[in-house]
Structures are given as structure tokens and as C-alpha cells.
Amino acid sequence: MRGRFISIEGGEAVGKSTQIRLLADWLRNEGRTVTITREPGGTDSAEAIRSLLLEGGADRWNARSEALLFAAARADHVARLIRPAVEAGGWVISDRFVDSSRAYQGIAGGLGDDAILGLHRFGSEGFLPDCTLLLELPAEEAARRAALRDGGDSDRIGGRDADFHASVASAFRSFAAADPDRFRAIDASGTSDVVHARIIAVLQPLMA
């Protein structure tokens, strides 16, 4: 039986890592085999590209270079890890997937959604999650959490200005509105247990 692929999306400091851990624990308790992964990353080759993307100065890559690197990492990630695990019956939970490239490079970076989706169709054969959980927070709360988490030492993408991150959040909302069958918007405010319960409630139909 085919497994499931779940991506967790959202802006900076919305609590993705905590919710991924809680979701994986819950799925394992339900008897599922679970693989946790991330983008960019997940395989040796993709992790090498991750270092190129997230380290260095803000101007190390332009938007086109970033988009190509993300697409290359994702192609390897899908072919070597995600698709085989799902086809073997496992559940894969990824911290970010193609929708982050759509939001960060496509919309906020100015390349356009069609360009990112074109790269995804070529590199990853258009492979998409069964469900995308979009964690949402008010901008002020997200900024407060990011400051506490990073202590002013963000990576080269997370450290971009407030207007950039507002554009990212707006892009995610538009993607969710345009594709309600795949996306589930999750209020990420409140305790981690409260947010986890919201996630479980929307994932129950996929457990059958």
C-alpha cells in the first residue's frame, strides 16, 4: 500500500520543527513507518546544495541561481528519498517543499510562480505532497519568535527584511486559497500541544 507525503510550510519561526516531531511521534504510535526530512536537503547531494544556499552573504546568489539550486536539490530528494519511501508504504514528513520555492523565489524573489513550477515539472516530474500543512502566525508574533530563536543570527534567507517575509506569507495564503484540496491552513498560535491537535484533526482522513 502506498504511503503518504506530508509537507509542512510557513514563514520563519512558525513552529515547523516542533510540529514535525510531534506529528512523527503520533504517526509512529499509530503504527506508521515515518521518515522526517527537510528542504533543501534530505540526501547527501541535496545537503551539499543546502550549505551553498544558506551560508554566505545575502547577495551570494540571485533569485534565478537560488531557484535552480533548490530545484536540483529537490530532484535528488524526490528521486532518492521521498518517492521510494512513499511507494514502500511509509509516511514522509518534509520541512518545506516546492511551495517554499514558489513563495520565496517565485513571488517574493520576483521570478514568478510559472517559472518555479516549470523547474519542478522538469526536475521532480511535478511530484506533490498528499497534504501540505501551512502553519500561520501574525507577522509580529513570527518576528518575536524568530528573534528569540536566532538571536539576530539568521541564515541568508531567513535574515531578509520584513517586506520580503510579508510577501512570502501572502504568497503562501494565495497558494492555499487556490488549492484547497491539498493545503490545510493551521493556526500556529497557542501551545505546541494545541497546534498539534489541530494538525491531527485535519490529517485524520488520510489515515484510512
Rank of each mutant, 00 (worst) to 15 (best):
D187C: 10
H120N: 12
Q105S: 09
L137E: 05
D193Q: 15
E47N: 08
S124G: 02
V78H: 06
W61T: 06
F97L: 12
D114N: 12
I200E: 14
P205A: 12
P40K: 12
P129D: 01
E140N: 03
L137M: 04
E55G: 05
L81W: 04
A166V: 01
E55L: 10
E9F: 09
H120V: 02
P84D: 12
D130T: 01
L54S: 06
I107S: 13
D95Q: 06
I200C: 14
R156W: 10
G3W: 05
A146I: 06
R145S: 00
D114W: 02
R102C: 11
R156V: 11
A75R: 07
R156C: 07
R184Y: 09
F175I: 11
K16A: 06
I199Q: 00
A147W: 02
E55I: 03
G89S: 04
S170R: 15
D59H: 10
M1L: 07
R60H: 13
R50E: 06
D130P: 00
A185Y: 03
L22W: 00
A103D: 10
L54N: 12
V98H: 12
A177T: 14
P40G: 13
H120M: 03
G159V: 07
A142M: 07
T33R: 13
T18N: 12
I199M: 09
A143T: 14
D130H: 13
R149H: 07
S65V: 05
A142H: 08
F70D: 00
S124L: 08
R156M: 12
D113A: 11
A197G: 15
S7C: 13
T43I: 05
A88I: 02
P180S: 13
I186D: 03
L135F: 04
F183H: 09
R80D: 08
V194A: 15
A46V: 05
L23M: 05
A58P: 10
F122R: 08
V14A: 08
L148S: 12
F175D: 14
G41F: 03
A169S: 14
A73E: 01
L23C: 10
A67H: 04
E39H: 04
N29V: 02
A85Q: 13
E87Y: 00
R38T: 00
S7G: 09
G112R: 09
A143C: 07
S51F: 05
E140M: 01
Y104V: 14
G158A: 15
A79I: 00
L54R: 11
E140H: 07
G41V: 01
L137Y: 07
D163G: 15
D155F: 06
S65M: 12
E9M: 07
M207L: 15
A176W: 04
F5D: 07
R21A: 15
L203W: 07
G110C: 12
D153H: 14
F172M: 04
V202K: 03
G11N: 05
I49F: 10
S189L: 11
S94V: 02
D25T: 15
A197I: 05
I200H: 04
A201T: 13
F183I: 03
L206P: 07
A162D: 15
V86Y: 04
P205T: 05
L68V: 13
A13G: 08
